[in-house]
């Protein structure tokens, strides 16, 4: 079929009905597509071997995304009877072939937009990604009211929110995690107001509904889209992989929500 790099990072979007599946469901879909493509996936050792693939911070169920990433590992020693050749490096054209193949096997709504080889020196996505940009549509309040709430959140020294962690109710301070928050006008859904947010992923990620609980508990989440994930390097915000295939590149953050 072609030549593939031993380590491959892919970037994909998750829009439309597929967004109602969970991160776990997404992992299953990827595993099935990898098997269908007969890609020589490297497996973990041990009693119950699993394919070696690592995601960035999980996308909450029902949220869509324009910037999801997975790092994949391939091995020439894989037990999979494969027609693919594993090499240390692969050309953009060769990577294009495997990206297209995976895209064609994944469920509708998952579009693989870019891929690139890794040399193994990159950190894991989970460790490297420090923040995510979101477009969030909410209902239950006018844009003007919401503007005031947002301002008071940004002015507050602390914004305590309740959430359940490991089965226990805990109180966390939301404020340090909010890098940016602004009202962007009316949303695509009638009556909804659109927010733009950049939320830290460390020490732990903030979900859109957790953000809303910090703004006002009466707000209702209508739609949420992750538009970018960011790696901070020497004061610059970089994407793990840009939509045009550049590893650790910078791009203008997009503020449009993909169609259904």
């Amino acid at each position: 079929m072609g030549t593939i790099p031993a380590r491959l990072r892919i970037r994909y979007t998750k829009t439309g009905r597929i967004r109602y599946t969970s991160q776990r469901d997404m992992a299953r879909a990827i595993e099935r597509a990898l098997r269908q493509a007969k890609l020589p996936v490297a497996y973990s050792e041990g009693f119950s071997p699993r394919p070696l693939l690592s995601f960035s911070l999980a996308l909450p169920t029902a949220c869509e995304s324009l910037a999801e990433y997975i790092d994949l590992r391939f091995s020439p020693d894989s037990e999979v009877a494969s027609e693919w050749t594993v090499a240390d490096e692969a050309t953009p054209e060769e990577i294009g072939v495997v990206v297209d193949r995976l895209g064609s096997l994944l469920p509708g709504g998952i579009d693989v937009v870019a891929g690139c080889g890794l040399d193994g020196s990159e950190g894991s996505l989970q460790e490297e990604v420090t923040s995510c940009s979101w477009i969030v549509e909410v209902a239950g309040m006018s844009a003007k009211q919401l503007d005031e709430r947002v301002a008071s959140l940004l002015n507050a020294a602390q914004v305590p929110i309740e959430r359940v962690r490991k089965g226990r109710q805990v109180t966390d301070d939301l404020r340090p995690s909010v890098h940016h928050l602004s009202v962007e006008g009316s949303g695509a859904t009638p009556g909804a107001v659109r927010l733009h947010a950049e939320l830290a992923t460390k020490p732990r990620g903030v979900r859109p509904n957790e953000l809303l609980s910090g703004i006002d508990s009466t707000l209702r989440l209508v739609r949420a889209s992750r538009t970018s994930q960011w790696i901070e390097r020497n004061g610059r915000r970089l994407e793990p992989l840009t939509a045009d295939g550049q590893l650790l590149g910078s791009a203008v953050p997009t503020t449009t929500i993909g169609g259904r």
Binding site: R17, I18, Y20, T21, S22, D25, T61, A62, P107, G108, G109, T189, L221, V222, R223
Partner: peptide, 15 residues
């Protein structure tokens, strides 16, 4: 609009 607020929304979307 209901799917954001129910458990396991993938139950209802087919595909």
């Amino acid at each position: 609009p209901l799917l954001f607020h129910v458990e396991k929304p993938a139950r209802y979307v087919g595909g």
